[in-house]
Every structure is written in C-alpha cells, then in structure tokens.
Design a protein around this nucleic acid. Sequence first.
RNA 1: GUCACAGUGGCUCAGUUGGAUAGAGCAACGGUCUUCUAAACCGUAGGUCGUGGGUUCGAAUCUCACCUGUGACACCA
Length: 564
Amino acid sequence: MDFKKQVVDTLIKVLPEEITEEQVTKLIEKPKTSDLGDYAFPTFILAKSLHKAPKMIAEELVGQLDTTGFEKVVNTGAYINFFLDKKAFSNAVIREVLTQKDNYGNADDGKGRNVPIDMSSPNIAKPMSMGHLRSTVIGNSIAKIITKLNYQPVKINHLGDWGTQFGKLIVGYKLWGSEEEVEADPINNLLKYYVRFHKEAEEKPELDDEARAWFKRMEDGDKEALALWTWFKELSLKEFQTIYDRLDVQFDHFTGESFYNDKMDAIVNTLEEKGLLEESRGAEIVDLSEYDLSPALIKKTDGATLYITRDLAAAKYRKDTFDFVKSLYVVGSEQAEHFTKLKIVLKKMGYDWADDIVYIPFGLITTGGKKLSTRKGNVILLDDVLNDAVNLAKKQIEEKNPNLKNKDAVAEAVGVGAVVFHDLKNDRRDSFDFNLEEVVRFEGETGPYVQYTNARALSILRKAGDVDYADATDVSVTDDEAWDTIKMLQNFPDVVERAAKEYEPSVIAKYVLKLAKSFNQYYAHSKILADDEGLKARLSLVKSVSTVLQMSLALLGVKAPEEM
RNA sequence: GUCACAGUGGCUCAGUUGGAUAGAGCAACGGUCUUCUAAACCGUAGGUCGUGGGUUCGAAUCUCACCUGUGACACCA
C-alpha cells in the first residue's frame, strides 16, 4: 500500500528523462491541508531546463498525466496536487492497522542489536527532582520507540552513588542526625544534613576537610564508612523505586558510579600506555587544547578519580559487555562539553566505537528562571509534583464523571500521565520554567486530552458490542470528516521511524495530539453508531484509531485508562 | 572573555531536507449537550518569525554581523 510510489510512477512517465525516480520521490511533499491534496509535486526545479514558468509547467504536465487510480489531479499554482482514491486508501490503511495491531509500525532496522541507555541516574541520598524526571521519561520513551524498530534497549540507571558528597553526608549525619530520624523519612532527612553541611561549611571550612577524610576512608574500604554508605544507598533506592513504580519504568541495571571503582586502574593504565596522560598543576590530565577544550581531568592532585574517569570506564565496560551498535546517554544539556571530551578521549585511546556514543541532551527545568540546586535546597520534588497532579485529577473526575469506577486508579493514570506527557511534548532541548498549573493541565494539547479521546473511542466500541473486525471485507470510510484521521493513521510508521532516528519522543507526542484532534473532529461531526451499511467500516476506523492512540501513549510511557 | 544552545501573536510552543495565504494550545470574546463521555467541538480576534545585510526563482528555515537570554568553561557530578 505504497501510495507515494503510485504518485511517483504516474509522474515519472511525463517528466523529462533526466529526472530520476529517486529525485521525484524526494521532491514529493505533503500539502499542509487536505483540501490542497494528499501529495504534491512542486515544479520549480523544472523551470530552468524547460525555460518556462513553473505555473505553466504544472498546467501542461497535469494535462498529460494518466490519472487513473486517483480521485483527481489538479495544478494549483506551481504545484501538481494529487488527491488519492479515498475508498482504496482508507480500506488499505484501516485493514493494515487491524491486522497488524500492536505490531503496526514495526520495522527491523535494529536486527536485535543492543543499545544501552544511560538514564535517570539520581544521586543517592538526594530526592528525585523534576530534572531526573526528564532523563527518566525521555530515556524510557526512547527505549520503547527503538524497540519498535527491533533494537534491544538496555536501560542502565547510572546512580550517583560515589564521591565526596558521601563524606559530607556522613559528617552531617554524625553531627546532627540519628538512626531513628533517618529511618522515619530517609531522603528528606539526609537532604537536610546535606543542605546544613553546605551552610555551615561556609563558615567552618574544616568541615570540608572532615568530609574529604570520610570519603577517603570509603575509598580505602573502611568498614564504618562503607556501612553508612550502604545503608544510605539502600534507603534511597527503596524510595526511588516507589517513584519508578508510579512512572512504570523498569531498569535492566542499577550499575552506579561505585560499580566502576575496580575498573578505573585499567583505564588509567591504558591512557598511560598510549602516552595520553600528562601532569599539570599536580593533577593527571589528557590535554585537549588542539580541540580548543579544557583538559580532561583524569586524576585529582590527591590521586582520586573524577567524573570523566568513571565515564571512560563505563563506556568501555558497556562496549565489552553489550557489544552495542549505539550507546545512548540521556543527560542534561549542561553536560555537553563533558560528552564531547569523553568521545575525543575514547577516540584518542583508539576506540573507533566512540562514534557510536550518542549524547542525548535535554533542556533544564528552572524555577523563577534559575537553575535548581540541591545544595541550596532549591528543588522541586518529583514526588510532590506527582501527588499534586493526581489530586487535581481526582478533583477533575469528581466534577466531570463522579460515577466513574476505579476513580483512584484513573486519577493516578491521568495525573501522572499529564506530568509525563508535558515533559515529552516539546523538543527535549527546550528548557522551561517550572509552573505547576502549566504542567498539570487537562485541556488542550495535553496527555489527558489524548487519554480522553481514547476513552471515548473505547466507549463507542463497548456500545457496539461484539464485532469481529477481522472478517470485514470492505472497511473503507470515505467521509470527508474522517479523511485526515485516516491519513494520520497511515503516517504512524514514518513517525515512529523519525522519532527513533532523532531520539525524540516529542515527535510521537506531537503526532498523537494531531491524531486525537482529527479524531475528535470526526467524532463531533459524524454519527458513528448509526445503523447503516457503513457501520462496520466506521467501527473499524474507531478501533484502528484507538489502537494507534494507545500504542503512541505506550511509547511515551503514558497509561491509557479505558474510562475517565 | 571563549564556546554551546536559544530568540515565532499576551503566555506556552509547532514549523523533516529552503517552497503554496506562518500553524496549534492556553488566556479573551461568542456559539454547540433530549442523539456515541462538553477533559470535546465550531467560530471571532491576535504575528514586519530578535535586528541589519548576504545567498536565490523563493528564507522562520542557509550564511555573516550585531543585540538579548540561558548554560558550560581544571581538581563536584
């Protein structure tokens, strides 16, 4: 059912010989609105060789075209506009969706190869903020999208579970904390010690020395230090898990920074062997001045390793373990330079697969135009946002549909769905200022709008009763009101492919909003459950729409309640 | 200061590879529930696409300069 090819084949017969099929395929575009046509061919490029005005060329070509198989072909200005045969097209598209079901849009680009995704990566003993939400939901959605193209995602939660901050935490806990307090509300209290540590350390710099000493003890394998660290880590993971459950996100590995502790020496040795390491100001670095970059700091003056050292080890480990085709890192855009350096150093080490490392940046979430900072206590807790969203959703249900069953479950799906969808709706590079009202919206271009559209579609299907969608011979719907919806359905596979290629969930989000809108327009203008010969075809369309709506929401990690 | 990213209606954003009168959603105003869920639909109003030059049949899109904003820039991650 390649309708574009039909257009190309028809065109190529009347075009000058020097124009190839490929060129034509590339030139074909889709008009902005359906009333202009379904496919269009711009004639501008012919103007030079034919020495005629594009408008005239279009006019002449239209006269020569064999228009069988099309509803009509007309020229509008310099464009040749093709109108597809609605009956054949809708029949083919709807049938395709109904038979493929959840496999609609699948492809085999990935051939089952591994693609590790570094995502979420919260810091132990710190609450998950809106920033972690972005990495989590973007990574999760990309994993689902590339799965449709038969890549095998490996979701890695690269926990921030090592570093000097644990020394600070231990100092803070020892000074101001107690076991009971921590057990009662682990992360909030640990955060409290951490924030207080930073405040007091401004006047008492000796606290920093103490913190460094405790971290040194951790690195040296000191029992007490490690016991506290393990305890903090376990408590944190438990709390993180409740959020991951709410978001319905699972990980394949929880290999944090500490996981690479015993893999650092090998990396440092290799760097040394390749003669890349030099000493500068007492630290060990890889010089990158030829790239106009500041050096990559491999070891601190005191011999401790740094961020990039660990990431080098992690990159190597992932290649060795997963033999990836691509290795993705869903990390905030402020770390762009880090990843540039990482790739350069790997390349210098002789690892060609450095080219397969893909950094997937996303924009910052700010409050009042300022960057969030855990240290300064300026955070937006993800858990709070989700709770607020769910409460608002519950209120909305009481207003709109008080007799709904499973109110709580639906409120959870709608509230969380609104937050997640909002985060994925726009280009991931856009940064935005946090605004609860903006994030938790239920009307317009929102997750709940799509969920609602699907719920209405399902409601129609329920009312229609048992229908066997497999046996219908003609499922064509030729209403003008349905045309945009049918074209959107046909577009889905291309959309999935583009989203995968660009690692951009917003492509799916934008698409599903448009599909929902076009279906709502159809819904508002046509009676679907009318008892006539077109009923089964219309129901098939509704069924197809709800299939694709649900699939799209699933690709974004948003739930689709049956009723709301 | 250097580098990176961004600047589209009051607000939040779309705008594949340059192409047909720059699209949505919120907010404003007006309309539509005895018929499939009004979290919906329809309409009105609102834009010299940061500024100035360049490339060409054609620029929101490419290029240069400038202005504005944000972020990164050696021992945090």
